[in-house]
Simulated assay, not measured.
Amino acid sequence: MHKETSGNGSRPAPVLTVKDVSYWYGTKQALDDVSFEVYPGKVTALLGPNGAGKTTLFSLITRLFDAPEGRIEICGKSASEWGARALGPLGVVFQQPTLDLDLTVKQNLRYFASLRGLSRKEADGRMLRALEALDMQERINERVRALNGGHRRRVEIARSLLHSPKLLLLDEPTVGLDVPTRSAIVSHVHNLARTGDIGVLWATHLFDEVEPNDDLLVLDRGRIVARGTAKDVVADTGAKDLGGAFKLLIGGEAEKDIAA
Score class of each variant (00 low, 15 high):
E255H: 14
N213T: 12
T62A: 06
G91I: 03
D232G: 01
K121G: 03
L248P: 06
D178F: 11
Y25V: 08
R143S: 00
G243L: 04
V225A: 03
T5E: 09
Y111C: 13
V15H: 09
G238Q: 08
F58H: 05
V233M: 02
D236V: 01
G41N: 10
D208N: 09
L46G: 05
I185Y: 08
L147K: 06
L168W: 11
L103Q: 02
G88M: 12
R120M: 06
E142Y: 13
R116E: 09
Q95E: 01
D197C: 08
N8A: 13
P40R: 08
T237C: 01
M1V: 13
A130R: 07
L99W: 03
R71Q: 08
T181I: 06
G117M: 11
L170S: 04
A239F: 01
A67K: 01
L47E: 10
H151P: 02
H2P: 01
A30E: 01
H188C: 05
I198Y: 12
G244T: 13
I185K: 01
F65D: 05
E4T: 13
S160Y: 03
D33L: 02
K28N: 05
G76D: 10
R227L: 11
A84H: 15
E156Q: 03
K240M: 11
T55Y: 01
G76V: 10
D171T: 00
I140P: 01
T195E: 14
V218T: 07
K3G: 06
L206P: 11
V92S: 03
R126K: 12
S164N: 15
G117Y: 13
M127V: 04
V234L: 10
K121W: 08
T229F: 04
D100F: 02
F58C: 09
K121Q: 09
S164H: 15
G70S: 00
K121L: 08
P173W: 02
G51E: 03
D124L: 09
D102S: 10
V93L: 04
F112S: 02
L101F: 07
M136D: 04
G244P: 10
L109M: 11
P68R: 00
S80F: 12
A86V: 04
M136S: 14
V234N: 07
A52D: 09
T17H: 12
G199V: 05
S35W: 08
V179N: 07
L90T: 00
A230H: 02
F58T: 04
L248F: 13
L192W: 13
P212H: 05
F207Q: 08
K247S: 15
R126G: 10
A254R: 06
Y111S: 10
A230Y: 11
A13C: 10
E122D: 14
D20M: 03
A13N: 15
A193I: 11
S78K: 07
F94H: 07
G222A: 09
A45P: 05
L177V: 04
A260C: 08
S6W: 12
I157V: 09
D220E: 06
R194S: 13
S187N: 14
G9K: 07
R85L: 15
T5R: 10
Y39D: 15
A230F: 02
